[in-house]
Simulated assay, not measured.
Amino acid sequence: MPGVVPAADRARDALAAAHRHPANLRGWDKTATEASWRAGRSSAAIDGGSVELVRDGDFDDPVLAGAMRVAQALDGDSLPQLVAVWTRAPLQTLARLHVLAAADMTDDQQLLGRPRADAELGQRLDLLAQLITGATKAPAPVLAAVVHAELLALEPFQHANGVVARAASRLVCTSTGLDPHTLGVPEVTWFKRVSEYRDLSNGFGAGDPEAIRLWLMLSCEALEAGAAEAMSIAEAARPRN
């Protein structure tokens, strides 16, 4: 697909540069924490959630509350364990992400973490799990885009599929070493280009070849822009003489 490999290379180089920023060589955890807040807010906003983010308090909006729980699970001490499970049992991790994302969206606890009972869905999720656990040599930015779009298309859960899909994309980036400290914030670009995001992810789900190519390009461009966002966060936190 024309343009995809160079776009993936640019995304990889940009994220590597973000990790080499002087403020991130030792203080990457501060950048990662700020990135998680921005990622959670943008992910919620893509799905129509509130953008009113109160950093010290509860979230009234259930979409934002779920997105922030997911974002915080992908930052800090819980991340290594989450990644370890993701690389060997990704469907288990998806269930965990869904519990976090949808906890305030339903009173039926039986719906949390459980995909729809559908044989075809089960087969597609099993195939996706195989890709995540190593059945592909695709570049990491491409794999992240495919996992993201496939989950958007499949809508395996009754609620919060978008938040889960974007978190899964982030986990691919972390587990493959593309963005090991979750510094990037591609969600900001997806929110800024939300109409394109929706159109191309729908086209991906429908199997349209050009939509698939453009979706891969959009995802790589978002990763590259998200790396620039990480650089700006790090630069703002850098001590001034």
Score class of each variant (00 low, 15 high):
P141Y: 03
P156K: 09
P156I: 14
V142H: 08
L151T: 06
A160R: 04
A140Y: 03
L152M: 09
V147A: 06
V83R: 12
K137F: 02
Q92S: 15
E155V: 00
A140H: 06
L94Y: 06
P139T: 00
T106Q: 04
H148V: 15
G162C: 05
L97S: 08
L125G: 13
A165R: 01
E150A: 11
R88Q: 13
L91R: 15
L111C: 00
P139D: 07
G162P: 03
D126W: 10
R166H: 07
L97I: 05
L121T: 08
W86S: 06
L91C: 10
V85S: 10
A160T: 07
L154N: 02
L127Q: 15
A138L: 13
Q109H: 10
D126R: 15
Q92C: 14
L143T: 00
V147K: 10
P141L: 00
V146I: 15
N161M: 04
Q130E: 15
D104G: 05
L79S: 08
A140G: 09
P156C: 14
Q110R: 15
A103Q: 10
L112Y: 05
A149H: 07
A135T: 00
A101W: 05
L100I: 00
A129W: 09
G134R: 11
L121N: 08
V85L: 09
H159S: 04
P80S: 04
K137M: 01
L121W: 12
P90K: 01
H98M: 11
H98I: 04
R124T: 14
L97Q: 09
Q92T: 15
Q81F: 04
Q123H: 14
A117Y: 05
T133E: 11
H98N: 13
D108K: 06
L131K: 11
A165H: 09
V147C: 04
N161H: 02
P115A: 14
P80Q: 10
R88W: 11
L121H: 14
A167W: 01
F157M: 00
V164A: 06
A135F: 05
P139I: 01
L100N: 04
A84H: 09
A102I: 08
L125H: 09
G113N: 11
D118I: 02
P139C: 06
T93W: 10
L121M: 12
W86F: 15
D104M: 09
R114D: 03
D126S: 15
P156A: 13
E150H: 07
T136A: 11
L91K: 10
R166N: 07
D126Q: 14
R88H: 13
V164E: 02
A140E: 08
V147Q: 08
